[in-house]
């Protein structure tokens, strides 16, 4: 825990983050000892280099033109999607558009005062908050974001950490004026929508050094997805996690009799693909979505303008 290494946090997981790309490229074994050491093959970037499974196969000869073309294709694919905070999209229901607009504007006003960066479920955050009972009247917590919830000014997120062997979870309101600082120590995504199952996982998956140094995410690059599979503690659990279709969860320890009942609690495939059932879920019209995106753009431009003025 004290000798924190962000790579050790996910043992056995295949983490694709770009900060440690150069080192990982060097550690990889040579692609094939038999393959001729042509200049063309050496020029292949590590991303095109085959994985460990494919290492046994002979590497194909690629001409430089083809290589450039492929690189260009990759760049097109990696174009970063514009980030918009999820909480400004109104949930479905009978809603007033004017009130939603006012709520969005209030969110943007708060963002002008306090910097709320982009973060996801699974990224590591440090939150400083005003606390009348703490020393120095502020408290700082470092942890993994395990959940993001709710809409508008009521949006909240949950941080989890294990400190001195004791699990700790704190729910923060994103737009509360008590929030002083929100730092993203490591920007990362997970394969699941929430990580509440970390409560029943081994504590090493949710222990984070409180003195962790922030890893900078290069701007303009896609956010890495951590597809780690978590090992669980023996039963009893808080919930029957095997019934929730979670990708980042190792269910090999679950007994066969329990796994036999899982299918009864999962939506069948034909219902998932049913358009009539999908229809009410996408309640926002395309027009409304465009309007929200435009408002977000205007807000981003304002933020840039104020940043320039300040500098």
């Amino acid at each position: 825990m004290k000798n924190y290494d962000h790579d050790n946090l996910c043992p056995g997981g295949n983490v694709r983050h770009f900060a440690s790309q150069d080192s990982s490229g060097k550690d990889e074994p040579p692609t094939n000892s038999k393959s001729p050491s042509d200049n063309e093959v050496d020029a292949i970037p590590e991303r095109l280099s085959p994985d460990n499974k494919a290492a046994t196969l002979p590497a194909p000869k690629i001409s430089l033109d083809l290589l450039r073309r492929r690189q260009a294709q990759k760049k097109d694919q990696e174009q970063v999607e514009k980030f918009i905070t999820p909480e400004i999209y109104p949930p479905m229901g009978r809603r007033s558009k004017i009130l939603d607009y006012l709520e969005r504007q209030d969110c943007f006003k708060r963002r002008m005062v306090m910097d709320i960066p982009e973060f996801y479920v699974g990224s590591i955050l440090a939150v400083t908050m005003a606390d009348p009972h703490a020393n120095g009247k502020t408290s700082r917590l470092v942890g993994i974001c395990i959940e993001r919830k709710n809409y508008g000014l009521g949006a909240s997120f949950k941080l989890r950490n294990v400190i001195d062997g004791q699990g700790l979870e704190v729910l923060y309101e994103l737009y509360s004026p008590l929030l002083h600082k929100l730092e993203v120590l490591k920007l990362e995504k997970r394969t699941d929508a929430h990580l509440l199952y970390l409560r029943d996982a081994l504590p090493e998956y949710s222990t984070i050094d409180p003195d962790m140094i922030a890893i900078k995410h290069p701007p303009g690059r896609p956010v890495p997805v951590n597809d780690i599979v978590v090992k669980m503690k023996p039963r009893p659990w808080h919930r029957r996690w095997e019934r929730y279709e979670l990708k980042g969860l190792d269910v090999s320890g679950v007994s066969q009799s329990r796994m036999a009942t899982v299918q009864d609690h999962i939506l069948p495939e034909y219902k998932k693909m049913d358009l009539l059932m999908m229809y009410p879920r996408y309640d926002i019209t395309e027009k409304e979505r465009m309007r929200i995106e435009r408002e977000w753009e205007v807000h981003q431009n304002e933020l840039e303008r104020t940043a320039k003025k300040g500098s």
Binding site: D106, K109, R110, M112, V113, M114, A130, D131, P132, G136, K137, T138, Y175, P177, L178, L179, H180
Partner: peptide, 13 residues
């Protein structure tokens, strides 16, 4: 009321 453009609430020591 705390207005959204005001600074964050801080408790004095």
């Amino acid at each position: 009321l705390h207005e959204m453009l005001q600074e964050s609430v801080a408790f004095e020591e």
